[in-house]
Amino acid sequence: MGLPIGWKGDCPLKYDKRPLLALVLRLVIGITFVAASIDKIGDPGRFATIIYGYSLFPGWIINPSAIVLPFVELFAGMALIVGVVPRSALMIISTLLFVFIVAITINLLRGHQFDCGCFSLAQTSRASSAFWLLVRDLVLFACAICLFQIKRPHRSL
């Protein structure tokens, strides 16, 4: 079945239980990631400044992240939408969401003002909206983990 080792639970979104819901969620997560990548690809300089604004990452990693991360989001999102290596895409998306959640949580806890740069780079997010971004990321993360139980395409189709 390809369940994560040690997980014996049965997720309500399991593909063979509610296929339509699972498909919709797969598309929602995929489209969310593709949409989030567009602005960042167009203006990596602004995205690098946003990463710097988190005050969590060493200088040497900021530019490479600003260049590569949006493309990882784009390809993982597209892979999830079209259903090519969806479990691999979900693995990447879950990891990214986990990093975002940790970064936003740390900054919220220490009261650090920052722009999340999650969608439009022009959109600034301060503490109150950062909280809702955290909630949204947590929901997406939970959905991604549940969807990870999707059967492999050659078996489910």
Binding site: I67, F71, V72, V85, R87
Partner: peptide
């Protein structure tokens, strides 16, 4: 799954650097 993820990452990195 890891192989698929590695392919996605490599494609992403190559496209990102080229772009």
């Amino acid at each position: 799954d890891f192989k698929g993820g590695a392919v996605l990452l490599i494609v992403s990195i190559c496209c990102a650097l080229a772009f």
